[in-house]
């Protein structure tokens, strides 16, 4: 075997785990005989060990920070998305609030027309609902998006949403008693969005707690 070329070639193949069984046998036989090649082989193996044993080097402490600072700005929506992912509870709260408000607002806005609860004896003049004098309205009265004038009597609660209670100043002579009309129950006036919300929620809670009751009185 030619030491300077073939044997060295086989040694490198050995180091790359590329030797066939046959070549390995040839190399072993040669190494047993040839001291020079033995030395060469040990030197190679030692060189590799020396290289592998060099110490590991670590990056400077602020390496990552500098890299991140130099990156091009990321898109805004990704930032928000990540925030939402990191705060699932807050996110669901935000979504809940958005849905709730949008629901309330749309029900606030959509009903631009006059709504009056179904009762007999009510007079309607344009946007004004009048409880005529001498008339008694039975049950709760609801007026939405309109004004209400009570000359007669309401036998129940009055809810006035987005409208005014007109105090009839024209009949001053008949005294306070008659002009204010008579409401035998609560008089609620709601004309602010937040009061509307509050009213809505109160209503909801009330209905939850008195489901059976509503079924009876709803007719």
């Amino acid at each position: 075997m030619n030491c300077s070329h073939e044997a060295v070639e086989l040694m490198h193949k050995y180091l790359d785990h590329d030797l066939t069984k046959e070549e390995e046998g040839r190399l072993r036989v040669h190494l047993e005989d040839c001291e020079a090649c033995q030395k060469h082989f040990h030197e190679l193996e030692r060189t590799i060990k020396l290289v592998q044993n060099t110490e590991q080097i670590t990056a400077p402490a602020d390496f990552k920070k500098s890299v991140m600072q130099k990156l091009p700005a990321e898109k805004k929506n990704v930032k928000y998305l990540r925030w939402f992912k990191a705060h699932p509870v807050l996110t669901s709260a935000v979504i809940f609030v958005i849905f709730m408000f949008s629901g309330m607002f749309s029900s606030w806005n959509q009903s631009g027309e006059l709504v009056v609860s179904k009762q007999e004896n009510l007079e309607i003049q344009g946007d004004t609902v009048i409880v005529p004098e001498g008339v008694t309205v039975e049950g709760d009265l609801l007026v939405k998006n309109g004004d209400l004038r009570i000359d007669g009597t309401v036998d129940g609660d009055v809810r006035l949403v987005n409208g005014d209670l007109i105090k009839d100043d024209t009949i001053e002579g008949s005294g306070l008693m008659a002009s204010a009309g008579e409401v035998n129950g609560d008089l609620q006036q709601v004309d602010q969005v937040f009061e509307w919300l509050w009213f809505h929620m109160k209503d909801l809670i009330k209905s939850i707690f008195s489901l059976g009751h509503i079924q009876l009185t709803g007719t």
Binding site: I57, T58, A59, P60, F63, K64, V67, M68, E74, V78
Partner: peptide
């Protein structure tokens, strides 16, 4: 790939020493 920069920060953390060492050598 979706554009999340903070995910890239983790990649930098993981590879920074290897890459720095490679460049240094």
């Amino acid at each position: 790939k979706r554009g999340d920069q903070s995910a890239f920060e983790d990649i930098v953390s993981f590879y920074q020493n290897k890459i720095y060492q490679h460049c240094y050598r």
